[in-house]
Write a protein that binds this DNA or RNA. Structure first.
Lengths: 227, 227
DNA sequence: CCCGCGCGTCAGGGTTGTGTCAAGGACGCC
DNA sequence: GGCGTCCTTGACACAACCCTGACGCGCGGG
């Protein structure tokens, strides 16, 4: 299911958006200010963001920049200002689209669909959706892991960590990068999280968790997933 | 250079676009009808398409569908019609953005930049930087060294030192420069560190550590990495 | 011939990093 | 309100890493 993050300080607009989105089977989170928005974006990993530029606590463009520092998630800007400069500034800061208020709900939804659509990975592209190892199989599209013919239950965080590692199969991923991709941009140093969750992944997926063959530790640097 | 395909039957609009785009160092092709447009799109492989919906020979939406049959190139629709239905139809057919005439050139260019930007491949993605020697292989992106088919385990400091040397393949790197790059700006004289870690690198990577062929000492000056 | 200098080698000890376990708390669900 | 799942956090043992000092060797100059 597609997850949308709506950021606006006007309750009636948020309500209208939430109702319309939920009716079309989107999963919706909402924030009323920039700080909450950045937090939610990091924690919930939305597939698309609808952002009102006029927020109470910070400049909308700064919100865009804050997001673009670590994610390429589509950002659809909503604004009451029609001036060309505003649009150019927001778009160049990293926004994907710019809609002026008052807006037609149909149009907004169509633009949302367009933004989500083009962010989708190429179907049948070069990147493998299924990664096999001698011990288990990871299906990135179906978000499923099979080991010995049986599905392995992973928690959201475990899956997220696995996903980042598998997408970088063979490459070393630094601890900082893992933390920021999974827990959000402000978590650069909490390496104990990594240790706990790497242990859980190994316990669930490695034949011998004490001597991992696929989830390899590079001391002082990071971790590496090998098939 | 970014290549743009402009499709419009109004000569003055095409002229305005071409002039503005060329001034910003885009490469521009132009078509006045749908048939020519599809042909040019296939032959020239533009990085982005600006498409007027009101064409003399075919419906603009059909042009979009024709393009989407084989390419994901960003399509920016230009139209005199403001109706919501038109927009929704074009966007759902596969357009990336929809701008109504009359439009501001600044805004259009900003939307164009946004469309091109998000079509770019992720920087630092899958492209690997690999350096090979007769004895071993260094993959700078994956932070991996392979020797005789097996991975070589390097500590952070060893890797850091190797990285600096490899990035300067063939060139002499002074002891001071090595110390400062690996241990920090305040370490200019602790040459014993270098001796210890060069020895470890040689032991792990050289066929005959006592007579190094790749990690060469230039007495009194520094070290040099040769393939 | 002896000495100083620069470099290579080795092994120990302090420091940092990692694996593991278990308990507490937040959250959603019935 | 009770229950279960999941995330966070702290404590501890152990392993890995980095620094350090000592020694040997080759070379050139006194």
């Amino acid at each position: 299911m597609t997850r949308v993050l709506v950021i606006d300080d006007e309750p009636q607009i948020v309500r209208a958006l939430v109702i319309n989105l939920k009716a079309r089977h989107y999963e919706v989170d909402a924030a009323h200010d920039g700080a909450t928005a950045l937090e939610l974006a990091a924690g919930r990993h939305p597939d698309v963001i609808v952002l009102d530029l006029g927020l109470p606590d910070m400049d909308g463009v700064d919100v865009i920049k804050g997001l673009r520092g670590w994610t390429r998630v589509p950002i659809l800007v909503l604004s009451a200002r029609h001036s060309s400069d505003e649009k150019v500034e927001a778009l160049d800061a990293g926004a994907d689209d710019y809609v002026t208020k008052p807006f037609g709900m149909d149009e907004l939804l169509a633009r949302l669909r367009a933004a989500v659509r083009r962010a989708e990975p190429v179907p049948g592209g070069t990147d493998d959706v299924i990664v096999e190892t001698p011990g288990f199989t990871v299906d990135l599209a179906a978000k499923k892991v099979v080991r010995g013919g049986k599905d392995v239950r992973l928690t959201p965080t475990e899956w997220h960590l696995l996903e980042v590692l598998v997408r970088n199969t063979g490459r070393l991923v630094s601890q900082k990068q893992l933390l920021q991709e999974v827990w959000g941009p402000s978590y650069g140093t909490e390496t104990n999280y990594l240790r706990v969750y790497m242990a859980q992944l190994r316990r669930k997926l490695e034949a011998d968790p004490a001597h991992p063959r696929h989830f390899i530790t590079e001391p002082g640097m990071g971790y590496r997933f090998e098939r």
